Amino acid sequence: MTIAAIDFNLLYQHHLALAGRTRKDASAWDGRAAGMAARAVGSRYAEEFIERMDLSGARSLLDVGCGPGTIALALAPRLEQVVGLDYSAAMLQAMREQAAARGLSHVQTRYRAWEDDWSDVPVCDIAVASRSTTVADIGAALAKLQRHARRRVYLTHLVGGHFTDPAIQEAIGRRVPAMPDYIYLLNILHARGIHPQLSYLAQESRLAGAVDFDDFARRVAWSMGGLDEAETARLRGWYAQATPAQREGAPMRWAFISWETAPC
């Protein structure tokens, strides 16, 4: 048996099922739109993402899972057309408001999920998917990015499979199975004759900056799909004796994956 015999997309889907994590519905993201839009300004993650991009010859960009436009709006002044795609209406509204405030009249939005029909989604020179590729069918998602980018694709995918520091999981007594991480994407692309570039981005934990225990517990619950009463009590006990560094947790790591879709 060789690596060519392995269906990495099917393996990804089996791993995702074993992880037991379900995608948050649009309403969950709607409720976070305002806060995410405020935090997007001056984001070091966004700066590092954009520093790794090559915009030469590019006039248009499609941002899939755009949220409030963290990546797309930062790039919009350098492009002629920017399209943000998301399944959260509130995120798209936040993006439109931010674009209007900055005088960016060439920014459009599309209310679409990865699984939807993209027949009316413009093909652009560059397609971006920042922290938005934890989907049911990653093979289909990668194919959509490939089809909708004339020149280049840029995406980030989780390294290590955990959105919550394992030390926090241990503290509450519930270990969450790891999600399928970036290595599946590399192998799927390899099987399709695509040889991407790979680097890594570090981002502070989602728990960093929590103002008190209630804020901290809300952030943990968001990442872990909720906490019951006993888990909240265990977390409170751990929080009371933890150092600030322990509360913040380990940084999140993202694989930055990019490839050319056509000669430039």
Results as ranks from 00 to 15, higher is better:
R78Y: 11
H190S: 12
R152V: 08
G57V: 08
L201I: 14
I126E: 06
A141H: 07
A34I: 10
R253H: 13
A113T: 03
Y12P: 09
L235S: 01
F213W: 07
A240D: 15
Y12K: 09
D181Y: 05
E48G: 07
L235P: 02
W118K: 06
A4V: 07
L104I: 09
A149I: 04
E80A: 14
R236Q: 15
L207Q: 13
Q93I: 01
R110I: 04
C124R: 02
I194C: 06
A208L: 11
R218L: 09
R59E: 15
R192N: 14
P180L: 07
D54F: 02
A19S: 14
R152T: 07
E204M: 01
F213D: 06
S88P: 04
D215A: 15
R175K: 11
R253D: 01
A171Q: 09
A58Y: 05
A129Y: 06
S27A: 15
A99P: 10
A33E: 05
F49Q: 02
E229S: 13
M95F: 00
M53G: 04
M36L: 12
G103F: 11
Q146C: 08
A89E: 13
D181V: 04
G193A: 05
E97S: 11
E47Q: 14
A245F: 03
I6L: 11
I257Y: 05
Q169Y: 00
A178I: 06
